Every structure is written in structure tokens, then in C-alpha cells.
Amino acid sequence: MRICMVALAGLLLAGCAGSTMNQARTQSPYKTLASNKADLVVAQCVQFAWQDEAVFGVDASGYLEPVDGGGFTVYTRSAESFIDVQGGVLKYYVVQDSWVATRRLAALATCL
């Protein structure tokens, strides 16, 4: 029973994150960057950088998902910040411009 509750909660959170990301994608990205590295390498690097508790404290989170048609999305809890990596183009979206968003941008820039 507990396992079912945890699985259901995970699905609900993923659904909320998905709608937040779809809504954000209807607008211009906060920042667009480019990389010559493979998409998966960049996405994994961003995921690792965003999970650094020494930098982000309790807000450290990074989840990686493949995107239909190629590429990857790395996002934070509640999709407050996320990046789409596809074909060497990185589109960084934020729900609210803040010091955390700027710090996440700096962390992902080290992965280019």
C-alpha cells in the first residue's frame, strides 16, 4: 500500500512539472546557449551540477528525461528551472528570476 502511495505521488508531481514546463516553453527561454558536446554529456553534467548540495543546499535537485524526437530535459523540483538540450542548443527556462536561477545558469555554463 505504501509503495502504491509513493508511486502515485511521484506521478502527480511529474504531471505538475510537465504542465509547468509546457507553459514555460510557450515563451522565450531565459537564456539560450550552445555546445559542441554530445547532448547526453551536457545533460548529465547539468544534472550533476544542479544536484550539488554545497551550492544549492536543500534546493539541490536535478532530474533527467529524454525528449521525444531527441534531446534531453533536465529539471528541478517543481520545474522551477529547467533546460532543454537538443542538437547542441541549450534553452534555459526559469519560473522566477532569482539568485537561485542565476546560480543554476552559472552551474550549467560550466558544462558547455
Rank of each mutant, 00 (worst) to 15 (best):
G57Q: 09
V95Q: 13
G69C: 06
G71I: 09
L8P: 04
S98K: 14
S78C: 06
G71Y: 05
Q44I: 01
T26Q: 09
Q44K: 15
V74M: 07
L108Y: 10
Y30F: 12
A101V: 01
T32E: 15
A49D: 05
V74W: 10
G62I: 03
I3L: 10
F48C: 00
K31S: 12
L11A: 09
C4N: 08
Y92V: 02
Q44W: 08
V85N: 07
E80A: 13
W50H: 03
L13C: 13
W50A: 00
T76A: 14
L13R: 11
Y93H: 12
E53S: 11
D84Y: 04
C4R: 11
T32D: 12
L64R: 15
V67F: 01
C111E: 15
S35E: 11
V6W: 08
C45E: 08
V41H: 07
S35H: 07
V42M: 01
Y30Q: 10
C4Q: 08
A60Q: 09
M5G: 03
Q44A: 07
V67I: 15
N36S: 12
Q23C: 01
W99D: 14
P66W: 03
V85D: 12
R104S: 09
S78V: 04
C45P: 12
Y75V: 01
S35P: 13
G70E: 15
L12G: 14
N22R: 07
F82T: 12
Y63P: 00
E53V: 04
K37E: 15
L112Y: 09
S35I: 02
V67G: 00
D84G: 07
K91C: 00
G88Q: 11
M21E: 11
G70C: 05
A106P: 06
L40G: 04
D84I: 15
A107C: 13
A17E: 10
W50K: 05
E65R: 15
L105M: 09
W99H: 06
N22W: 05
K37Y: 14
C111A: 09
Y63N: 14
A43W: 03
R2Y: 14
V58Q: 10
A17Q: 03
Q47N: 12
L12F: 11
T110C: 02
Q27W: 05
T26P: 00
D52C: 03
P29K: 03
A17Y: 02
C45H: 05
D52Y: 04
T73K: 02
A7Q: 09
M1P: 10
Q23S: 12
G70T: 10
S61V: 00
A7G: 02
G87V: 02
V6H: 06
A109F: 01
F72P: 01
M1T: 08
A34H: 14
A14T: 06
L33C: 03
W50F: 10
S35D: 11
W99R: 08
L33F: 03
D84K: 08
L12A: 07
L11S: 05
